[in-house]
Design a protein around this nucleic acid. Sequence first.
DNA 1: TCTGGGGTCCTAGGACCC
DNA 2: TCTGGGGTCCTAGGACCC
Length: 438
Amino acid sequence: MLSTVLDLRVAKRFALVDCNNFYVSCERLFKPALIGKPVVVLSNNDGCVVARSQEVKDLGIKMGVPVFRIYDLIKRHNIQVYSSNYTLYGDLSGRVMSTLAQFAPDVEIYSIDEAFIDLSEFRYRDLTEYGSEIRNRVMQWVGIPVSVGIAPTKTLAKLANRIAKKSGSGVFDLSIYPSIDEILSQVNVGDVWGIGSKYDKWLRDRGITTALNLKYADESLIRAKMGIVGVKLQMELKGESCLAMELIDNPKQGTCVSRSFPKSINELSALKEAIAFFTHRAAEKLRRQKQAASVITIFARTSPFRDNFYSNSATAELTLSSNYTLDLSRVASRLVESIYREGQNFKKAGVIMTGLVSESQIQGSLFDINFDINFDINNDEAKMRSRNLTSVMDTINAMYGRDTLRFASTGVIQVWKTKSEQRSPQYTTCWGDLLEVS
DNA sequence: TCTGGGGTCCTAGGACCC
DNA sequence: TCTGGGGTCCTAGGACCC
């Protein structure tokens, strides 16, 4: 019994499976001519680089650089440029994840291109070999290259994955490596999972420059600055697992829809249209997640890269939680005037829905209408109509494509609409974009 | 000229209550 | 008016992630 308890405590094994250059790999899958060529994928709005092929990384182009700064490099090296195509990436991600699910019962989908797998029960096997099997099968079934890092904690599995990416085999098991400290001494502290730019600077200023330094740094110092998160991080580096697998698909705490505008907006009417559109999208998301919101926040700001930065937000609470576009827009549009300032060049805006509840828990739902003592026929009929209209719109939009039907308040000219000039077709999810084989 | 979007968690401090 | 400790809840802000 005691040994079982000890086993549970010490003998964890986590694998972190990470897709290599995921968005680029997705583009290459349907355009093999891109293999071996330098490729980048841009953010929404075609603003920044969010994915790079190895060839591009080798050119020294950093993650997140604004594309206008590398125009000359793009030309000189004939870099292939793509707008991001999240529909395609989301679909391929799903295929990767369901392939992983065949290797262990517990898979935590951490992001669109990463998953943790609990391999503790396989710890007496050769996990390097098991990792290779995972890698090969994902490649064979989905066509996406992945790397596998294995270690006794999630934080170390992240590091193991970085090493796996650099190694030829694409798999690295840190738990059998003779000297973990030797590896940690070669990792910059800022490359540790959980250390961002602010903590990186703070730690460096105190002589803590490597993962090894952090592992053995004074706990009270770390706790004072980083709180419990920092202490757990140190323990994870020491091989003691503090971050468990998160398997339950937790309902979202909030849902946000925001965009930067290709050209700044200064008219109230345009800002209203943009907010109406974001609210429309957010309501769609909520309905898809089977959730409803009770609090709406809207925000707008000017460019943080210009002088006289202006940013404002406003929040309102709904009397009843809702996920219907009309209910939510009414509240959102009322808020716009309170954050608008004449003469400001708004560069970004958005809506945030919080206070989310499950759709089934909405109080005073449709079914209560008949039992409501204060039954107000006009009001409730209007609500009914709004609800019926929404579900008809959802159905039609699902059949004929997004925004076939939308509310006029979301704008006709849509000056705020984002750019996406180099988007690849939706090969896997749209009949019209299916690849033809001749 | 041109700089992403969508999330999470933790903490400190204030409001409020008994 | 002065005088208290202790608890909860909420919010804003700061950090992080991909």
